[in-house]
């Protein structure tokens, strides 16, 4: 646009009344937002509404026939031992991932926020699992945990043959291994978020605490952690959402087995809908799952936000 025409537009805009200006400005804003809303509606909102509708039908995901079955799918869910067991496994996994991410992520961030020379290299190493493709990474871990895999071979070579385990074959160990792999793949992200938070902590505040006689633990507890409240909120919310909806790592490592030991709501939803051809029932599990996730995440966010307001 030439300077003349730009000036003309400015003059024309200046001549408009305040109502017209508001309308024009709103029109431009909507012009930018509408395509995104259309895509969001098509990809997210419509499937959610359709899925909610399917939850009250007996649709098999294939035929054109489906009947309204009311709350039958939800009654079935309440009496389905595998589905109920998958809810507790999901909560155990999400809780474990949350603790691992927060504790290990924070410790790593504190350690790598110092002046050690290799800090950038170490940050890269710890962050690397986050950018690896989950499916490929899980295949590698599956080989590591297999009966003749690297872990058992390493234990044998170290003279610890009696520590060898059926890592993915024993229900207890299988759940532990899945939690370990998912935590390993996510801790780097928590570390980076905490690092960003730590770099915002004013140096003079820490110096003041030191002058007041606060030791390292007191400084961490009373100065650094309160200042990290926003980073904590982000980390907790991300950890809860990812922990509750993990699928690919579990599916590759154990496919929900052995038996039903590592079956989570995500794997149950997938199997019910796509493998068993019970799309209606699968949708009802997904609906309950969505409500559980929304409740947990909303509650966590509400509590943590309150904490931020108190301390910031």
């Amino acid at each position: 646009m030439s300077s003349d025409s730009a000036a003309h537009v400015e003059v024309t805009f200046a001549k408009l009344g305040s109502n017209s200006k508001r309308l024009l400005s709103a029109g431009v804003s909507w012009g930018f937002v509408l395509p995104a809303i259309a895509v969001y509606g098509f990809v997210i909102v419509y499937p959610m509404i359709a899925g909610t509708g399917f939850a009250f039908t007996d649709w098999d995901g294939l035929s054109n026939d489906r009947s309204f079955v009311g709350l039958e799918n939800f009654r079935r869910l309440a009496s389905d031992p595998q589905a109920r067991a998958s809810i507790s496994t999901t909560l155990v996994m999400a809780g474990s991932l949350l603790v691992a991410k927060i504790v290990i992520g924070l410790l790593l961030a504190l350690a790598l926020n110092t002046q050690i020379r290799t800090r950038n290299f170490l940050r890269m190493i710890f962050f690397m699992p986050v950018v690896l493709t989950p499916v490929i990474m899980s295949f590698v871990w599956r080989y590591i945990f297999s009966s003749n895999g690297a872990l058992n071979q390493l234990l044998e070579a170290a003279g610890l043959g009696n520590w060898e385990q059926q890592w993915l074959g024993d229900p207890g160990w299988a759940l532990f291994c899945v939690i370990f792999v998912t935590s390993w793949s996510q801790v780097g992200l928590a570390m980076v978020i905490f690092l960003a938070g730590l770099q915002k902590v004013p140096e003079e505040l820490i110096e003041a605490a030191k002058i007041d006689g606060a030791g390292p633990v007191r400084r961490l507890w009373s100065v650094i952690l309160p200042m990290l409240a926003p980073a904590m909120t982000v980390n907790v919310v991300i950890a809860l959402i990812t922990g509750l909806k993990f699928f690919d790592q579990i599916y590759v490592l154990t496919a929900g087995g052995p038996g039903y030991a590592t079956e989570t709501m995500s794997t149950i939803i997938y199997k019910t809908s796509f493998q068993f051809g019970e799309f209606g029932y699968g949708s009802s599990i997904a609906l309950v799952f969505a409500i559980i996730v929304a409740t947990i995440v909303y509650s966590a966010t509400y509590l943590l936000k309150k904490r931020e307001i108190e301390h910031v």
């Binding site: 074959g169 024993d170 229900p171 929900g256 087995g257 052995p258 038996g259 039903y260 493998q275 068993f276």
Partner: peptide
């Protein structure tokens, strides 16, 4: 249905695992 076969898969794993 497919559920029978999948139940066999999980059932055998539990059987061999002693569960």
């Amino acid at each position: 249905n497919v559920r029978v076969q999948q139940t066999l898969f999980s059932g055998v794993q539990e059987l061999l695992g002693g569960q």
